[in-house]
Computed example of a mutant assay.
Amino acid sequence: MRSRSGKPLKKCEVRLMDDGCSSFSFTIWDEELIDFAQTWTPKENIVFVVDAKVNFNSYSNSMVASCDPKTIITTNPDCREAHQLYQYAQGLGDLNTEAEEEKDTAGNSSFTDISVITKVYTVAELLRAQASGKEPSFSGILYAILMSIGIDEEADPARIISFRCTTCKMKAQQSSRQCTNASCPSLSSSSSSLFATEAQFSLPLALADHTGGLEGVRLAGKAASDLLQLTPGEFLEGTHPEDKMALKLRLQLERFKIYFKSGVVSGDKQKPLVRILSMSPTQPGDLVLAATS
């Protein structure tokens, strides 16, 4: 990119999000800040921006932000709001540069009460509702077959179990179990933060019904423990490879009643974001309810 005078320019567009906005464009022009921004990892870095310039962009028909010489950027500030935002981000599905995902609080203390969810969706209806973007988030019931669940010895452990620091609740390194938050009090103390972590499930699933398939679904927290009837600690320490395979075979190709929460996906390529609130084998009465609702 070049300026009007022909001077070469660098431009970096970063997509920011919080619990109130799924995608907000922040443009960086300064080369030093661009190099800084390229070290950020989605869902791992909390960015605190001061004195950014905010304007309405007629091309994108939305508000956008950009930096100027007065802009100050701080990553991973040690404050309650930053910790809460980090925990919220960890409850989302996978993020990438092509799609930013809408608010999803499954697995957190504030997730949707399933007793108020009554609307039944097929997979096709769920995907159409996401693509329409009419609702920023919605919940429902899905009756689907579990096509795959990544819990056997072939699965990447980092895609099954994640670890969080017990002090600041931010994500810990998968191998060393040390907190990734440079401002965490446990890192500044004389004692090591090694193993001062708590394990949490984050299981990849694929679902299907008579209308289509749904991949990229995440099963986390209590819903995962309830389905497997295991805690993360029991799964890590007491489950042998043959046990994992037996568990996988027992669950796969069975039909489940699934309470879910979905967010609207933005970006050039549409990517479903579905988090499971509760998942249990279907009962005969459930199928009748689905057929008549």
Score class of each variant (00 low, 15 high):
residue 174 Q to I: 04
residue 277 L to E: 11
residue 187 L to R: 04
residue 233 G to H: 13
residue 179 C to G: 07
residue 249 L to K: 02
residue 125 E to N: 13
residue 78 D to V: 09
residue 19 D to Q: 03
residue 130 Q to N: 05
residue 246 A to S: 07
residue 102 E to N: 04
residue 28 I to N: 10
residue 293 S to K: 13
residue 68 D to R: 15
residue 128 R to A: 09
residue 80 R to K: 13
residue 236 L to W: 11
residue 219 L to Q: 00
residue 28 I to H: 10
residue 16 L to A: 01
residue 71 T to N: 10
residue 264 V to H: 00
residue 90 Q to C: 15
residue 186 S to F: 11
residue 92 L to N: 02
residue 220 A to L: 02
residue 127 L to Y: 11
residue 25 S to D: 08
residue 172 A to M: 11
residue 30 D to Q: 05
residue 125 E to Y: 09
residue 206 A to C: 14
residue 168 C to G: 04
residue 221 G to T: 09
residue 261 K to Y: 03
residue 3 S to R: 13
residue 282 T to W: 12
residue 216 G to A: 06
residue 116 V to D: 08
residue 238 G to N: 05
residue 26 F to H: 03
residue 258 I to D: 05
residue 262 S to I: 00
residue 240 H to P: 00
residue 232 P to W: 00
residue 84 Q to I: 04
residue 141 I to K: 01
residue 113 D to N: 15
residue 170 M to H: 08
residue 275 R to P: 00
residue 200 Q to Y: 04
residue 10 K to Q: 11
residue 15 R to T: 09
residue 214 L to I: 12
residue 45 N to G: 06
residue 44 E to D: 03
residue 98 E to T: 06
residue 179 C to A: 01
residue 179 C to W: 15
residue 90 Q to K: 01
residue 105 T to F: 10
residue 267 G to C: 09
residue 34 I to S: 04
residue 196 A to G: 06
residue 92 L to W: 00
residue 180 T to K: 00
residue 107 G to R: 00
residue 124 A to V: 02
residue 47 V to Y: 03
residue 144 A to N: 09
residue 83 H to E: 14
residue 194 L to Y: 04
residue 228 L to G: 08
residue 200 Q to T: 06
residue 59 Y to R: 12
residue 112 T to I: 06
residue 257 K to M: 06
residue 284 P to F: 10
residue 156 D to F: 03
residue 190 S to Q: 15
residue 269 K to H: 12
residue 248 K to T: 06
residue 42 P to V: 15
residue 79 C to L: 14
residue 224 A to I: 02
residue 90 Q to H: 13
residue 259 Y to W: 07
residue 184 C to I: 05
residue 18 D to Y: 11
residue 66 S to H: 02
residue 51 D to V: 01
residue 68 D to W: 07
residue 93 G to H: 00
residue 231 T to P: 06
residue 251 L to D: 10
residue 157 P to H: 12
residue 273 L to S: 03
residue 198 E to K: 08
residue 117 I to A: 13
residue 162 S to M: 05
residue 216 G to N: 13
residue 17 M to R: 08
residue 166 T to W: 02
